[in-house]
């Protein structure tokens, strides 16, 4: 009974005092499944540091997240794309002032077997390989060898980004090998001479060879200076300037510890 009273009185008190940094506030994150693993891990670690914080994270997709923040149904919208002008206008109509925060960069590198002499491809060539127009390495300046196309399962965030940034949403050839994780793509490519695959930058290692895209090698530096074409920022959006737990959470994500989570999940940190 006593706790019930406390529960009812304390928010009232907080509102009365106008305390923005009221601990124990509930923060709801919703949106992109690409950002989901970062948000999930960050929320867990954040709640370990702040025992009274209550952060819940939901997926649904970038569009769902942005629609949800315009409805006021969540506090932070996760998105793997920038908010569109129509969405900003819709927000203005509803009295919402949407503020963007870039929390990480997503960079995807095409990879081949180390024995493959091909050093780089253009975005167009990669697209033609994945959609089935090219099926031999000799068509892109390599040896006479069948190309084994390796892709991620179509519901993964990495696939979604690759599909958008390289394939322009065209269909991957039906006989592509589908793998369930970045690691599985890497290990299959490392064992298959004619293979091409793609992995998040965090998953590059010595057993596979990364290709340059349009002449730019994928790396943390080229992703951060926006030279590397197969990359995109990952956003979190808030309504107005974030305050209280939401602000603490975003600050945590941008801190060293937060960016470590970003890298651990296979994305590119901002620093």
């Amino acid at each position: 009974m006593k706790t019930m009273m406390k529960l009812m009185v304390m928010p009232a008190l907080a509102i009365a005092l106008g305390a923005p940094a009221f601990a124990g506030q509930k923060v709801v994150l919703e949106g992109s499944t690409t950002v989901l693993p970062i948000a999930q891990r960050a929320a867990e670690d954040f709640m370990k540091l702040h025992k009274d914080a209550d952060i819940s994270v939901r997926g649904g997709g970038s569009g769902v997240g942005i629609a949800s923040i315009l409805d006021g149904a969540c506090d932070i919208a996760d998105s793997s794309r920038a908010i569109q002008p129509e969405e900003v206008a819709e927000g203005k109509k509803r009295g919402k002032d949407i503020k963007p925060f870039v929390v990480a960069m997503d960079g995807i590198a095409p990879v081949v077997h180390p024995s493959n002499p091909v050093k780089g491809l253009t975005k167009e060539q990669i697209k033609n390989i994945y959609t089935g127009k090219f099926s031999n390495w000799s068509e892109v300046g390599g040896p006479d060898l069948k190309i084994v196309v390796i892709s991620r399962d179509s519901s993964s965030g990495t696939f979604e980004a690759f599909n958008e940034l390289v394939l322009n949403k065209e269909k991957v050839r039906a006989d592509a090998i589908m793998q369930a994780s970045n690691q599985a793509v890497g290990s299959t490519v490392s064992r298959t001479r004619g293979a091409i695959g793609y992995v998040g930058l965090g998953y590059l290692n010595a057993s596979i060879k990364a290709l340059s895209v349009n002449g730019v090698m994928p790396s943390k530096a080229t992703v951060l200076n926006h030279k590397y074409p197969v990359s995109r920022p990952l956003y979190m959006y808030t309504n107005g300037k974030p305050a209280g737990t939401a602000k603490q959470f975003l600050d945590f994500l941008k801190s060293k510890a937060g960016q470590k989570i970003v890298e651990a999940e296979g994305f590119v940190g901002l620093k």
């Binding site: 499944t33 399962d153 179509s154 519901s155 993964s156 039906a174 006989d175 592509a176 090998i177 589908m178 793998q179 369930a180």
Partner: peptide, 26 residues
């Protein structure tokens, strides 16, 4: 995991169970 009708025993395939397991999570 290739979702194509198999023509030889050397073709990669995507059986029903694999499709469910790979896609249900997302």
């Amino acid at each position: 995991g290739s979702a194509v009708i198999p023509h030889s025993i050397f073709d990669p395939v995507r059986p029903m169970t694999a499709a469910i397991a790979a896609e249900m999570g997302e």
